[in-house]
Design a protein around this nucleic acid. Structure first.
Length: 184
DNA sequence: CTCGGGATTGAG
DNA sequence: TCAATCCCGAGC
């Protein structure tokens, strides 16, 4: 499975390299698995789209923590978003997992809120080490098909930062949250 | 303490 | 187009 060194690299590199990898959550001895097909990078102190843009708070503290841990937060009171923390401790950065293609018996899911629901991920997983069970990532089993970059979704408020192409998708996947070509 | 908004989703 | 639903950050 992917180790700490994988996540201790530039955030855009990690976000790209995660496409095609398998996200696994073991629940009661059963693996819930999805192939990652869409990610977004949130990187550094100045990224206005990042929760870290206004400094460290209790919520975003995991982004400042060591690489290879989960940053999970509740959005709109309903959904959970899963991020995988990158870069060294003290530097706020993470990759949002936006969509996976379900493998095995995993319920259909597309989008950051639906994949966490299908995988059974919630606030209890915040700050969890994702380099070992029950929550971890497996390297690609097959060569990556293709990866394209687009602006990030839902961050129009972030000015110039919203226009950066920090979203990575496998355009061949049927499971994307937003089809390529749309950026708003 | 109150208050308002959000890295979303699904219904109409 | 809009509401669900609640944590969290800002401000008093």
């Amino acid at each position: 499975m992917l180790d700490r060194d994988f996540f201790d690299r530039p955030t855009l590199t990690v976000a790209r390299d995660l496409i095609g990898c398998l996200l696994v959550h073991e629940v009661r001895g059963r693996a819930r698995t999805g192939m990652i097909v869409e990610t977004e990078a949130y990187d550094g102190f100045r990224d206005a789209a990042s929760h870290a843009a206004r400094g460290r708070t209790r919520r975003n503290a995991p982004m400042y923590g060591p690489p290879g841990r989960a940053y999970v937060y509740l959005i709109y009171g309903i959904y959970h978003c899963l991020n995988l923390v990158t870069r060294e401790e003290g530097y706020p950065a993470a990759v949002l997992i936006r969509a996976v293609e379900p493998l095995g018996s995993l319920d259909p899911c597309s989008g950051p809120g639906r994949l966490t629901r299908a995988l059974g991920i919630d606030l209890r997983h915040n700050e969890l080490d994702v380099t070992r069970p029950p929550l971890y990532v497996l390297p690609r089993q097959q060569p990556v098909r293709r990866v394209i970059r687009t602006p990030r979704i839902g961050v129009d408020y972030a000015g110039e930062w919203a226009r950066k192409r920090w979203r990575f998708v496998d355009p061949a996947s049927a499971g994307l949250s937003v089809r390529p070509g749309r950026s708003r």
